[in-house]
Design a protein around this nucleic acid. Structure first.
Lengths: 107, 107
DNA sequence: TAAACGTACAACCAAATGGTTACATATTTA
DNA sequence: TAAATATGTAACCATTTGGTTGTACGTTTA
């Protein structure tokens, strides 16, 4: 059967362009919600919902600091995507990458 | 701004567990629709819709052969996901992987 | 040629998704 | 303390998503 549609679905989380942009912003710096929202042409509420989805996927986390809530990136769950992708790499990659696979397998 | 929500959105295409399973099936073998549908607990029509989405993302293609339509995998668009991921790898990977990055950059 | 097979497609549906506005609450700051 | 700032949250909405059933149509095959 297919991979179960988990509560913390990282594939679903990264399927939205807005959420990918949020990840990129947080890769640069941790930021409060309002600063994140400033980068988008949508309401702060809408951005907050995206932050919740990313939080459920454990790709980000927020801490309260005074009246602000500061979000930071946690890229670890992306390894699941990387592992999934690695299965398909052999179908398209070249010899240089084959070498890379050998290195990978040494882990 | 965010990555445009393209017509052929590979991130959206792979966000669904059923579609990821279809890709896995086609990675093994090219198959007609009915054979793909047999692997799922849903109607053939529903599976066909997933095949259309994967086709729009150019991850698969189908050819008519007699009364069958045979689908095959085209994994190339997954490189977009791989490239996107590579930006985040530096945040989590270890030194062995750093070496791998050096090799990668030689391309 | 009649029946079975494989697919295409229209119409419909419930739930999820991605957005909104309005208002409440907590924290600084003037 | 009053005002401004930052966030939380409820209620609502349109569209998309992921599924269904029913029917039609081309292709074997008995």
């Amino acid at each position: 059967m297919a991979t179960p549609a988990e509560k913390h679905d990282v594939f679903k989380a990264i399927s939205d362009p807005t959420r990918r942009e949020v990840l990129r912003l947080l890769a640069e710096n941790e930021r409060p919600i309002s600063e994140i929202a400033d980068h988008f042409d949508m309401s702060r509420t809408a951005v907050t919902k995206h932050l919740q989805i990313l939080t459920e996927a454990e790709l980000i986390s927020g801490r309260k600091e005074g009246r602000e809530k500061i979000y930071q990136l946690h890229p670890e769950p992306l390894t699941e995507v990387k592992q999934w992708l690695s299965y398909y790499e052999k179908f398209w990659e070249n010899k240089l990458s084959m070498l890379k696979h050998l290195v990978e397998d040494e882990k």
